[in-house]
Nucleic acid binder design. Structure first.
Lengths: 231, 231
DNA sequence: CTCCAGAAACTGTGATCACAGTTTGCGTCG
DNA sequence: CGACGCAAACTGTGATCACAGTTTCTGGAG
């Protein structure tokens, strides 16, 4: 994990730019979690994270609490120690089902608000996804895929559902890395991004809903297979 | 809001019982939020909360972060000040739709695991709901109604979905208080608790799903009407 | 070589303080 | 009498320290 912006100014942050340190820490841990840089099942500690990021334990504590509330980090109730939740078939199944409801709904709600600029951006992001797959670049794929989906969802004007989707991605992130490790980049080559983009361009809410549902459904099937195979 | 267990021991907590203070604070604020004791829209502060609960600002900070992550508290991005989210029609609509998917699903999943003890408990809780309605006791109604639903959901063996349901109730809590204020206890008298209990007793997953869906749907309709009327 | 004690290191938690930004309110000037 | 301005109070944030519980390592005895 890379240190937050000023590598390790030991004290005093005049910061008029008002980007709170605990938010930077949150983003850093979140990214490390989603991209699988912190492996599921392993324990982490406030002080070790703080040292790694070059900040005091305080903002890390805030970030960790937030992530724990979002279930992206687990707190052992016995000794209160932190760990990355491990991947179980049950968790994956529940997360799949939840995603399969929320995200198509968000896509459908976004359809009426799609404009030419968004379509252009979606095509760029889909190209970035394909490029990352061709190169086998895991991090780039995850980033581009995330950005593609959320570029759509953010247009839905549904703050509450959007937050739910964010939370679900955060929890399912580590699973994705596993899939990559097991089925390789080729296994994820097929998606429904073009289909979704076309439906959105035509303001076809139901088409967008179906395309995203199919996209997720296929992706989750691969994850399930990968998790079951790895047991 | 009432102080956490030792009213105001100013310092040193030997606490071998290991119930973390920030969890007590979390529960206290959560309860105050759900029962509407803290009105939507008003601002709160760490220090005022801390003083009211007789603890230092530290555990309050933890609890508040957690609640903010669960969207039960809002943080003004400009000045970082805390407030209780206000009730908008859009928020209610999204929360309704989410609940209408998650909760029937949980009820259906619980059906196979229902035993006689749970049926007995559900009948007791439903009786408590009716009693509270007869007396017009808002707090008792909210508690009993919550307990009835979650006694079912906890049997679903679906930790992830259960957490989602918890988060949704936390966000929708303040709306319920408003409904009570506007339509009165009589307006909530009709529910589908008996229907749901019978379906669960028969291990009828689909019946349970329908009963809970109907229960929610009717309740949410009343909330929507109350929110729209109050504008 | 194995096993068990004791110490050292590390864990999360909470309190206290310092700081910078914002809001509030009171006194004064026009 | 109204409006402006400055000071005091209050806001969240972050650092540091103290503490108690747990884990981990180590050294010695069997």
């Amino acid at each position: 994990m890379s240190p937050v912006s000023p590598p390790a100014s030991p004290r005093r942050k005049p910061l008029a730019d008002s980007v709170a340190v605990h938010d930077q820490v949150y983003d850093a841990i979140r990214l490390a979690l989603i991209t699988g840089r912190i492996a599921p099942g392993v324990g982490v500690s406030l002080r070790s994270l703080a040292a790694e990021l070059g900040v005091s334990p305080m903002p890390v504590r805030d970030a960790v609490r937030r992530l724990a509330a979002e279930r992206a980090l687990a707190i052992n109730p016995a000794n209160k120690r932190l760990s990355v939740p491990s991947l179980t078939a049950s968790r994956l199944e529940q997360l799949s089902q939840a995603r399969l409801w929320v995200e198509p709904e968000l896509a459908a709600r976004a359809a009426p608000h799609v404009d030419a600029a968004l379509v252009k951006r979606l095509r760029e992001l889909d190209a970035a996804v394909d490029e990352a797959l061709k190169l086998g670049d895991v991090d780039a794929y995850m980033t581009a895929n995330h950005d593609f989906h959320f570029a759509i969802y953010e247009r839905a004007e549904a703050e509450v559902l959007l937050a739910m989707a964010n939370g679900l991605w955060l929890q399912i992130g580590p699973f994705m890395r596993v899939v990559f490790g097991r089925v390789g980049a080729d296994g994820l080559a097929a998606d429904r991004h073009v289909e979704a983009t076309e439906a959105l361009k035509a303001h076809d809410a139901d088409g967008a809903r179906r395309a995203i549902a199919a996209d997720l459904s296929e992706g989750m099937d691969k994850m399930r297979a990968a998790v079951e195979a790895g047991r």
